[in-house]
Every structure is written in structure tokens, then in C-alpha cells.
Design a protein around this nucleic acid. Structure first.
Length: 264
DNA sequence: AAATGACGCAACCGCCTGTAG
DNA sequence: TCTACAGGCGGTTGCGTCATT
């Protein structure tokens, strides 16, 4: 028995998402959550692969995403983390609230790489370019220096060197060190530390929803009504159908009120 | 104003990992 | 222990936009 494809690709749409598709996906996920990505497009009435839906949600539609260019602090953090972790974008994104691995990867490839090269720093090894020996193609890059060349040049002291290889077990950045906007006066949201460092969701986990904004498409789509949920984010939504939505981790069905028939 | 090239970002592809049966 | 599967990750591509000529 061959492996079943993740979705039936016949007749599935590819390419850029339309506003209507976004609206369907967001509406569905906010109402039902994603119990199984494979069935999300079917139930939401989308001719898309489940993976595509997950990607669209994760990288663009999630309500806690920041948009716009990375700040200087964020860029510095990305550089430091890249020196420690290499191209493990999801791990890096986990330390930047509201940023996605894809966004950081793109920003690295288009901006930071050039910036480092311009400064005479090899973006792979984080050493000065004139100290980087030519590497055979099959060999991994040398381990990063204790203090990155970026820091040597810049004099910055932000980089926390990790001695333990298991970076998953030891958070590189303490939750309080993560650049997060302070809660607004009108917000009564509170973010539990466990949520802040939750490894299960690359970037949404680390963000405070009180600071989150809907990405522009939400407004364009007239989704304001959906967002008119008061302070429900931090408590977990209970939406029609008995489903809870935990904005800091996963959107999951409330086991007590989960309508299995509806899903099936 | 039109043509061309460079750039940036969204999305896809394919592999890897974790997990349930 | 093995197999099948879903979800996740990183690399890559394609296209739209902007700048330059």
C-alpha cells in the first residue's frame, strides 16, 4: 500500500489566495478551530490542500502576527540566534513574538545577509569574511565563535552563547527578555509564562495578543465583526458550537462541547 | 512613457519527525 | 517493531512591484 498523499491534489487550486478564500478560512478556523488540517479545506469549502491552508493561516492570517519590517532589535536578535542555531528558522521565530519562520527566513535572505556581507561578515559562519576559509561543499560550517563577529564589530553584548547543544530544552532568551509591547491600559489580558515559551507554535506562542493586530487583509475583508470578541483571547474563546480557541497555542475543539458529528 | 532588471515576498515542494495503531 | 499518516520545517521558485535607464 503506497503512501496516501496529504490531500487529493486533483482539482485543487494553487497560487495566490483570494480575499474570498481568506475569509472562508479565517471564518472557519475562528469558528471551529483546526482539528485536522486535512479536513479543514473540505469543511471550509476551499479547493486547497490542507498544508496550504495551514501555511496561509500560519504565515499570513493568524491574528497575532506583526506585519512590517523587523525592528533593529528584532534584526539583532535574529542575527544572534542565527549564529547559535543556524538556519533553524522556526526556532528563531519562536523567540520573536508575532513573527513567522517564513518571514524571518525571507528577511534574512533579502536583507540581513546583504547587510552582514556589506559589513564584511560571512552570514553563514558569522566570522569576518577574510577569516572564512573556503569550505568544501559537503562539510558543515564551522561552529560559531563564542562571540559573533557581528558583536565583535558592533560591540553589542546581546548574544547568549549556548553551551548546551539541546537548545530546545534551554530557552535561549528568557521570556522577559523577549521584546514584547507592554499591555495597553485598556487591556486586561495576561499572558502566562507557559504560553510565552510554548514550543508548540513557532511564533504565535510568544506573542501577547493584546499587542497583536489583525493583518491588513482582515480589515480589507471586513472581518471586524469576527474580531469583536472583547477580551476573549486570553481566556480562550468559546464560540458557537462549543469550541474553544486558545490564541496562544493551538486552536482546538473543546472536548466537552465538541461536536464530533459536525467534524466527521 | 516604455522597457528592462533587480528585489522582495507569498506560496509550493519535498523531506523529516512524531505518533498512533 | 513496523507501517502509515499528519504536521512541521527549510529550501526554492514564481510573480508582482519598484527602480533605473
Amino acid at each position: 500500500m503506497g503512501r496516501q498523499p496529504c490531500c487529493d491534489k486533483v482539482g485543487l487550486k494553487k497560487g495566490p489566495w483570494t480575499a474570498e478564500e481568506d475569509q472562508k478560512l479565517v471564518g472557519f478556523l475562528l469558528t471551529h478551530g483546526h482539528y485536522c488540517w486535512r479536513v479543514v479545506p473540505k469543511l471550509a469549502g476551499l479547493l486547497r490542500c490542507g498544508k496550504s491552508c495551514r501555511l496561509r493561516w500560519t504565515n499570513y492570517l493568524r491574528p497575532d502576527l506583526k506585519r512590517g519590517l523587523l525592528s533593529d532589535e528584532e534584526q539583532q536578535l535574529v542575527i544572534d540566534l542565527h549564529a547559535q542555531l543556524g538556519n533553524r528558522w522556526s526556532k528563531i521565530a519562536a523567540q520573536l513574538p508575532g513573527r513567522t519562520d517564513n518571514e524571518i527566513k525571507n528577511h534574512w535572505n533579502t536583507h540581513i545577509k546583504k547587510k552582514l556581507r556589506k559589513m564584511g561578515i560571512d552570514p553563514v559562519t558569522h566570522r569576518p569574511l577574510d577569516q572564512v576559509p573556503p569550505r568544501p561543499a559537503q562539510q558543515p560550517p564551522p561552529p560559531p565563535p563564542t562571540t559573533t563577529a557581528w558583536q565583535q564589530q558592533d560591540g553589542a553584548e546581546h548574544c547568549q552563547q549556548v553551551e548546551d547543544e539541546d537548545v530546545k530544552a534551554v530557552p535561549l532568551i528568557q521570556p522577559h527578555e523577549v521584546t514584547a509591547p507592554p499591555p495597553t491600559a485598556s487591556s486586561n489580558c495576561s499572558v502566562s509564562p507557559a504560553s510565552v515559551v510554548s514550543p508548540s507554535c513557532s511564533s504565535s506562542a510568544a506573542s501577547g495578543l493584546e499587542a497583536a493586530e489583525w493583518p491588513e487583509p482582515m480589515y480589507l475583508l471586513g472581518m471586524d465583526g469576527i474580531m469583536d470578541v472583547g477580551s476573549g483571547w486570553d481566556a480562550g474563546f468559546v464560540v458557537p458550537g462549543g469550541l474553544s480557541v486558545d490564541p496562544f497555542d493551538h486552536y482546538y475543539p473543546d472536548p466537552a462541547g465538541f461536536d464530533q458529528e459536525a467534524w466527521l
